[in-house]
C-alpha cells in the first residue's frame, strides 16, 4: 500500500512539465526514503534523476518498495486536471496495475480522483559515481534558460567554459557566432540573483543545445540552477525543489573523435 500526500501539488505538475518531453515512459520508484525516478531520453544522451524525499510529504506511507511504470504523457494529462493550489495524493496497492491521483481543492469542497493504468517498463538503472567536479556554477535559472534559448537561435551546440573570469557560453552557426560571459557577482539583497563560481581548475565542454533547452523546462521549480562540470564528463544541471528534493539532468558532452 502506497499513499503519498503532497500539499503543494503544483510541484508535481511542474516536475512532469519539466521531464515529459525528454522522457516518454519511466518507472517511479517508491521507498521509505522517497519518491524517485531515473530515466534516459530515447537516444540515451541525457539522463534525468528526480528525488522527492519522504519528509517533504505531509503524509508518506510506503509499506514496501514499489516501482510503478508510467507513461509520462498520460500522467501529465491527468495532473493537468489538478488545480495549482490542489493537494495531490498518489495512491497504489502493492502489485496493482493502476495508480490513483487524488486532487483536493484547498477548501476541501472539491475532491477528484483519476486512475491511471500502469505499464511494464524495462529500464536500466545506471549507477552515477560520486565525482569531484572541476567547476560548479550557481546562477539564476531564468538567466540560464535565457542564454540557452538565445544561443539556440544561432547554433546547435554550446561550449561552456569556466575560468577565473567567469562562465562563458559560446556558439556558432551559419549566420554568425555568439558569446555570453557571466561573471561572479554577489547580490546583497537576493541570493537568487547571484552567480557563484567555484572552480578547482578551468573546464570547457561542448553540449547539444536542444537538450539544455529541454532541461530549462524545470526553471519554474527553482530560482537558481547549478551546473557541475568536469573534463570529459557529463554536466549535471540541477534544480532544487523547495524543501523536498531535486531534479538533476545529466548530459553527455560532445567529444572529439
Amino acid at each position: 500500500m502506497l499513499e503519498l500526500r503532497l500539499v503543494q501539488g503544483s510541484l508535481l505538475k511542474k516536475v512532469l512539465d519539466a521531464i515529459k518531453d525528454l522522457v516518454t515512459d519511466a518507472n517511479f520508484d517508491c521507498s521509505e526514503s522517497g519518491f524517485s525516478l531515473q530515466a534516459m531520453d530515447s537516444s540515451h544522451v541525457a539522463l534525468v534523476a528526480l528525488l522527492l524525499r519522504s519528509d517533504g510529504f505531509e503524509h508518506y506511507r510506503c509499506d514496501r518498495n514499489l516501482s510503478m511504470g508510467m507513461n509520462l504523457t498520460n500522467m501529465s494529462k491527468m495532473l493537468k486536471c489538478a488545480g495549482n493550489d490542489d493537494i495531490i495524493t498518489i495512491k497504489a496497492d502493492d502489485g496493482g496495475d493502476s495508480v490513483t491521483f487524488m486532487f483536493e481543492s484547498p477548501s476541501q469542497d472539491k475532491v477528484s480522483d483519476f486512475e491511471m493504468k500502469l505499464m511494464d517498463i524495462d529500464s536500466e538503472h545506471l549507477g552515477i559515481p560520486e565525482t569531484e567536479y572541476h567547476a560548479i556554477v550557481k546562477m539564476p535559472s531564468a538567466e540560464f534558460a535565457r542564454i540557452c534559448r538565445d544561443l539556440s537561435t544561432i547554433g546547435d551546440t554550446v561550449v561552456i567554459s569556466v575560468s577565473k573570469d567567469g562562465v562563458k557560453f559560446s556558439t556558432s552557426g551559419d549566420i554568425g557566432s555568439a558569446n555570453v560571459v557571466c561573471r561572479q557577482n554577489n547580490s546583497v539583497d537576493n541570493k537568487d540573483n547571484e552567480t557563484v563560481i567555484e572552480m578547482n581548475e578551468p573546464v570547457s565542454l561542448t553540449f547539444a543545445l536542444r537538450y539544455l533547452n529541454s532541461f530549462t523546462k524545470a526553471t519554474t521549480l527553482s530560482n537558481t540552477v547549478t551546473l557541475s562540470m568536469s573534463k570529459e564528463l557529463p554536466v549535471v544541471v540541477e534544480y532544487k525543489i523547495a524543501e523536498i528534493g531535486h531534479i538533476r539532468f545529466y548530459l553527455a558532452p560532445k567529444i572529439e573523435d
Binding site: M40, H44, V45, G127, P234, Y250, A252, K254
Partner: peptide
C-alpha cells in the same frame, strides 16, 4: 568534428 557520446558510456548499469 565532435561526436555526441552516450550517457551510458559514463554511467554503468547497476
Amino acid at each position: 568534428g565532435k561526436q555526441q557520446g552516450s550517457i551510458m558510456s559514463f554511467f554503468k548499469k547497476q
